[in-house]
C-alpha cells in the first residue's frame, strides 16, 4: 500500500489548491481555458519568462505538493508525459525548417521530454532519482509503477506526476485524421507525493497499478488485475473511465461484459478534456472524492483512452 500524501493539479477545472473540487466541478464547456495560478508564487520571475505552459504547470504542481506533504525534499522525481514539450518542439522545428544560420537555443533546450523533471530538480535542488516515462496514454501509469518500485526499494517519498500540453495544431491533426473526438483537447498537469509510511496528510492509497500495451483482452485483463488484488468487479465503489468515441450506452463497448453498474461509473474526460495523461487528473479526482466521501473504499481508474493501451490503477481509502 502506498499513501498519496499530496496532490496538485492544474487543469481546465478549478483544481489547484482547491480541496473538495470534485464535489462541485461541472463538465467542461467547449470554450474552457486552462485555469492557472499566479505562477510568481512558485517560480522565479526570470525563469518563468522562458518557461512554456507545460513547464510552468509542472513546476508549480511539484512545489505545491512538496508544501502540502511538509517534506524538505522528495527522494525521487518521476514524470510521465505522452507528447512532451509540444510548444517548444513545434517552435524549434519551425525554426529549423524556415531559418538559415544559427538558431536561438532556448526552444531546443526546453523541447526534450525530460525538461519537466529536470526543471523540478533544478528549482528545488534535488539530487535524487530523476526519470521521465513517455508511453502515450499510459505514460502516467508507467511512471506510477516506477514510483511504487522505488518505495519498495526503500525510498520514503516520491514526487510523481504527469503533464501534457495542447497546441492548436493538435486540433488540425485530429480533424485531418478524422478522430471525431467527443471532448476538447486540453492541457493538464497532476502531481502527487507517494509515501511508504502512513501519515496525517494521506488522501487515499494506491493499492496497485498496471500499464498494458498492445492489449487484446481488456475485460480479462481487468478481472486478472482485480483478482491479483483479491477483488471482484462488485467490490468497486467507483470506476473512473474516459468516455471516448468507442462508447455505446454510456460505457466503453470493450467493458460491456464487466457488468459495471452505471451509477458507479464516472467519465473523467468530461471534466479534464482529452490529453494523453488525463488519467493522472482522474487519480486526483478520485482521491479528492475519497477524502470527502468515506463510503468510497475501492476505486478503479480504468484508462482506455487509446484502444491498444490499458492503464489500471486501484485506489483504496486510508484505513482509520
Amino acid at each position: 500500500m502506498y499513501y498519496i500524501s499530496a496532490a496538485s493539479t492544474i487543469s481546465h477545472q478549478p483544481t489547484f489548491q482547491n480541496v473538495g473540487f470534485s464535489t462541485h466541478i461541472e463538465p467542461l464547456q467547449e470554450t474552457s481555458v486552462l485555469l492557472t495560478p499566479d505562477y510568481k508564487g512558485f517560480i522565479d520571475a526570470g525563469l518563468l519568462r522562458r518557461m512554456s505552459k507545460i513547464l510552468r504547470m509542472s513546476v508549480a504542481c511539484a512545489k505545491d505538493c512538496i508544501g502540502q506533504a511538509g517534506i524538505d525534499q522528495p527522494d525521487a522525481i518521476i514524470v510521465g508525459t505522452g507528447l512532451g514539450c509540444l510548444l517548444d518542439t513545434e517552435k524549434f522545428l519551425n525554426n529549423v525548417l524556415t531559418i538559415e544560420g544559427l538558431l536561438p537555443p532556448t526552444s531546443f533546450i526546453q523541447s526534450t521530454h525530460n525538461t519537466m523533471a529536470g526543471q523540478i530538480s533544478l528549482s528545488i535542488g534535488n539530487h535524487g532519482y530523476n526519470m521521465t516515462h513517455t508511453q502515450n496514454s499510459i505514460s502516467f501509469e508507467n511512471a506510477l509503477l516506477d514510483a511504487m518500485l522505488l518505495l519498495e526499494e526503500g525510498e520514503r517519498n516520491v514526487l510523481i506526476g504527469a503533464a501534457d500540453e495542447a497546441i492548436d495544431f493538435l486540433n488540425v491533426i485530429s480533424e485531418k485524421l478524422h478522430l471525431q473526438l467527443q471532448h476538447s483537447l486540453t492541457s493538464g498537469a497532476s502531481f502527487f507525493i507517494l509515501s511508504k509510511q502512513k501519515n496525517d496528510h494521506a488522501l487515499a492509497c494506491v493499492k496497485d497499478t498496471q500499464a498494458i500495451g498492445l492489449v487484446n483482452d481488456v475485460t480479462g485483463q481487468i478481472k486478472d488485475f482485480l483478482a491479483g488484488n483479491e477483488m471482484k468487479v462488485q467490490d468497486l465503489d467507483l470506476v473512473l473511465l474516459p468516455g471516448t468515441s468507442h462508447h455505446s450506452d454510456g460505457l466503453p463497448a470493450s467493458l460491456a461484459s464487466l457488468n459495471l453498474e452505471e451509477n458507479k461509473c464516472v467519465d473523467y474526460l468530461r471534466f479534464s478534456g482529452i490529453y494523453p495523461t488525463a488519467s493522472a487528473f482522474a487519480m486526483h479526482l478520485a482521491a479528492d472524492k475519497m477524502k470527502a466521501d468515506k463510503s468510497l473504499k475501492n476505486v478503479l481508474i480504468c484508462n482506455t483512452l487509446i484502444q491498444s493501451n490499458l492503464g489500471l490503477t486501484l485506489l483504496q481509502s486510508v484505513e482509520a
Partner: peptide, 20 residues
C-alpha cells in the same frame, strides 16, 4: 517502441523512457 514490440510479438509491459 510499440512498433518494435508489435513486430516481435511482445505485448503487456511496453514502456519508453526519455531522459535525453
Amino acid at each position: 517502441t510499440e512498433r518494435i514490440a508489435a513486430e516481435l510479438g511482445i505485448s503487456g509491459y511496453i514502456n519508453t523512457l526519455s531522459t535525453a
